[in-house]
Amino acid sequence: MDQFIHQVLAGLATGGIYASVALALVMIYQATHLVNFAQGELAMFSTYIAWALINAGLPYWGAFFLTVGFSFVLGVVIERVIIRPVENFPALAVVVVFIALLVILNSVTGWIYSFTIKSFPSPFPEQTLFGNKYMSSHEIGAIGVTLVLLLLLYAFFRYTPLGLAMRAAAQNPESSRLVGIRVGWMLALGWGLAAAIGSVAGMMVAPIVFLDPNMMGGVLLYAFAAALLGGIDSPGGAVFGGFLVGVLENVLGAFVIGNELKLAVALVLIIGVLTVRPSGFFGKVHVTRV
C-alpha cells in the first residue's frame, strides 16, 4: 500500500510537469488551432539557457525569471518570423514547419552545449518536507509551481483587459479586429506565453530526467496525451489531464506493464482518445458543416 501511495504521489509530481507542457500546447491551440510539435524542444532550449545562466553565477531564482522572460521573447519572435508566413497554409505545411523547428532547436542546442548529459539544480531543499516519507521536496515544489502557474494564468485571462482581448482574438478574430484588437499580436503573445510556460516545465523536469537535448521527447508525448485527454481547447482540462496521465503512467509502469513500456501508455491514450472521444473530457465537440 505504501508503495502504491508513493507511486501515485510521484505520478502527481511528474503529472504537474506534463500539465504545464500540456497547458502550453493548449495556449497555442486556442490562439491558432495548431498543435505545436516543437513545444518540447522549445522548453528544452530554455532550460539550457537557465543552466548557462546558473553556471555563469546567477542565483537560481534570478536565472529562473530571466529564462522565463527570455523564453517569452523567443516565443513571440518565432511566431512573428517563422509561423506567421504559414498561418493559413494547409496542415501539412504547418506540420513541416513545426518539425523543422524541432530539429533545428534540437541540433543547435547540441551544437552549442554538446550532447553530454548534465545535471540541473533544484531550487527546493534536499531533505524532505515535514518529514513525510512519500515525496521529495522537489516533487512537492513542482506541483506547487504548476498550481501557481495555473492560478496566475486564470487570473490573467479572467481579470485583465489583455487577457480578455486574447480570448476574444482566439474566439472570433473578425469581430475582435472590428473592435480594435490587434489579432496578429494577440497570437504572438499566446506563443510567448506558451514558450514561457514551457520553460517553467523544462526547469522543473530537468532535475528529474537530467539535462540533455532529447530530454523532452517523452515529456512532449505525455503532454500531448494529457492535452487530448482533457480536451485540446480547455486549459483546466489540460491540467487535469496532465495529473491523470502522470499518475496513470507511474501506476501502470510500476504494477501492470513495467517501466519498459511506459511510452506505449501515451501512444494508446492518444490513439484511444482521438478515436473514441476526440474532444476529450472537457473540450468542445466540433461539428463540421458540409
Binding site: 510539435f37 496542415a91 500531448f224 501512444l267 478515436t275
Partner: peptide, 29 residues
C-alpha cells in the same frame, strides 16, 4: 482504420506518438 477518424494535425499527432514510442516497444523484454 483508427487513423480514418483523424485528419491533418491529429493524424500527424497519432503517428508522431507511434514513431516516438516505437524503440521502446522493440526493446520490450
Amino acid at each position: 482504420l483508427p487513423a480514418l477518424r483523424l485528419e491533418g494535425l491529429y493524424l500527424a499527432l497519432a503517428t508522431f506518438a507511434l514513431g516516438v514510442s516505437l524503440p521502446q516497444l522493440l526493446k520490450y523484454h
